[in-house]
Simulated assay, not measured.
Amino acid sequence: MKWFVHIDMDAFFASVELASKPYFAKYPFAVGGSEKSRTVVSAASYKARECGIKAGMSMFEAYRKCPNLISVEPDMDKYISISKEIFSIVESVAGNVEIYSVDEGFFHSDSMDIAIDMTKDIKQRIKNDLKITCSAGIAKNRLVAKMASEENKPDGLTLIRDAFSYIGEKEVGEVVGIGRQTQKHLNGLGIYYVKQIRDYPMNILKKHFNSYAYILREVSYGRDSVNMM
């Protein structure tokens, strides 16, 4: 039985900048641009998030919400370089790595205990070497591992032994791959929690979602689907 670990950096762009500018850590901090620029927030520190600032928000709106916000222009070359160092650490410890994006990826192990130990080692090495943190989710498939990594941010580690129970209690909009339109459609059918999909008549699901209905049913049981990732 394979155990999958999802490594997800915490507020990656902002954390990379703060690692070299620790004197800004006590202030709300964002990567995006100046107040007068027509750019959007690429990443917000957790202190900035407490002010209601989030990725995708215009810089104008961000400064309106938080006048004492400190921001810098994005430096993608720097983030890509740090990303390579992160995944080099993962591969050196785990012996395998699947890069999902610049700030998240997976590795796997045949042992739950070994997966946990390797995850703790990776998290500590990233913190020691790069001065940034990551959160991790461990489960028997990638989908649930990715969801689990969001549970205890920042710097968290969440193990899901029972994917069936875990995902069943989630609202449908919390599932990776279920977008707003699908969530709205499911809610319109009276489906608000994932466990409700399990007992919903398949013929009606197929009428509304075509072949995607089978994917929704599989996911409702905590099973992975490449179409959801």
Rank of each mutant, 00 (worst) to 15 (best):
M112L: 15
N128G: 03
K127W: 03
F12E: 02
M112P: 08
K127C: 11
S34M: 00
F24G: 06
I122G: 00
T119R: 00
Y46D: 02
F12R: 01
R38M: 06
D10N: 13
F107R: 03
D10S: 09
Y79L: 08
H108R: 10
K123V: 02
E91P: 05
W3P: 07
Y100M: 14
G56W: 13
G52H: 10
S81A: 15
D121P: 00
D75S: 07
F106H: 04
F24P: 08
P74V: 06
A25R: 15
I122D: 00
A48T: 08
E85D: 03
K54P: 07
M9G: 01
R125S: 06
E91W: 03
S101E: 15
R64I: 06
M59W: 07
N68K: 12
F107P: 03
K47W: 10
S101I: 06
I70N: 11
A25W: 07
F29V: 06
M76A: 01
E61W: 10
H108E: 14
I70G: 03
V72Y: 12
K54N: 13
F106T: 02
S101H: 13
K26L: 10
C66N: 10
K123T: 02
A25V: 11
M118T: 00
D77N: 12
E85T: 00
A55P: 07
Y46F: 13
Y27L: 12
I99G: 00
K123A: 06
S88P: 00
I99S: 00
T39V: 03
I80H: 04
K2R: 15
K65D: 03
N128Y: 04
S20W: 09
I7T: 10
E61S: 12
D8A: 08
M112T: 05
V31P: 04
E85V: 00
R38L: 05
W3E: 13
F24W: 14
A55T: 15
D103M: 10
I126N: 11
S45Y: 03
E104T: 03
I122K: 00
P67I: 11
M59K: 07
E35L: 11
A43E: 00
V97Q: 01
F106V: 02
V16H: 03
I114G: 05
K120G: 09
E98S: 14
D129C: 09
A62G: 09
F87W: 11
I114Q: 15
V90T: 02
A11H: 06
Y23H: 14
S109R: 10
N128S: 12
D10C: 11
Y100Q: 14
A48G: 12
D103L: 09
K123G: 02
M76W: 04
P28V: 07
L69W: 04
N128L: 10
E35Q: 14
K84C: 01
K54M: 12
G56H: 13
Y27M: 12
L18R: 04
S109L: 08
S42M: 03
E61P: 05
V97S: 01
A25G: 08
H6N: 14
A25E: 15
W3N: 13
I116R: 08
Y27P: 04
K2V: 07
G32E: 10
A62L: 05
V102T: 12
V102Y: 08
I7E: 11
K47S: 13
V72W: 11
M76R: 07
A62K: 05
